[in-house]
Write a protein that binds this DNA or RNA. Structure first.
Length: 181
DNA sequence: GTACAGATTGAG
DNA sequence: TCAATCTGTACT
């Protein structure tokens, strides 16, 4: 399913998180393009997920974009200095999203992803299926399609406060090094 | 109103 | 190991 389609995002969040691996983020600034291949994602599935900002169905001015229909950007500031790029998934009203944690070679860490792509609050709620300044592309083609064996599932990072049950869920997905090229 | 901690990072 | 520094939440 092409990444440009809305239906790509309206599927189980864990599926979307895995299928985003290997896709390219394209950021257009004037005549210039910045690009990066997604190699690390994390799934957040509120309201049952204690590590999610939407735990218990909570809605705040900051997290409301998480409730948008799949394919929208949910971006927020952590620790007062770092932006985190998330892509909403599922249907309108369901607070599920995928955090983009790393781009191959150019951004190892969610804060760096946004710094590299020059993303900030102005992208809050941006629609990836319609935007002219940021979108996703699938360049893998059939011969290079990502296989399940190339994806490593691990525990999510930095959410110990959510307790062992949630922090141990293997909802972080990494595209394995030897398979990247 | 005040206090506090967080889906991080880079310097020391 | 720790500080940077904004936002939401839980208090007073």
């Amino acid at each position: 399913m092409p990444v440009e389609e809305r239906n790509f995002y309206i599927r189980p969040t864990l599926t979307v998180a895995k299928e985003l691996l290997g896709k390219y983020i394209v950021r257009k600034i004037g005549r210039k393009k910045l690009e990066g291949r997604i190699i690390e994602t994390e799934a957040y599935i509120g309201p049952q997920d204690k590590a999610s900002h939407a735990y218990k169905g909570k809605v705040t001015p900051r997290n409301r974009a998480e409730y948008l229909v799949g394919g929208h950007i949910y971006i927020y500031l952590v620790y007062g200095m770092y932006w985190q790029l998330n892509i909403s998934t599922a249907k309108e009203g369901k607070p599920e999203c995928v955090l983009i944690r790393a781009l191959d070679k150019v951004a190892a860490g969610p804060g760096k992803v946004c710094r590299y792509l020059k993303l900030g609050k102005s992208f809050y709620g941006e629609d990836l299926t319609k935007s002219k300044r940021i979108w996703l592309e699938d360049r893998s083609g059939l011969p290079k399609k990502i296989k399940p064996s190339q994806i490593k599932a691990t525990a999510r990072i930095g959410i110990d406060y959510a307790g062992p049950y949630w922090s141990r869920r293997k909802w972080r997905f990494v595209l394995m090094n030897k398979e990247r090229k």
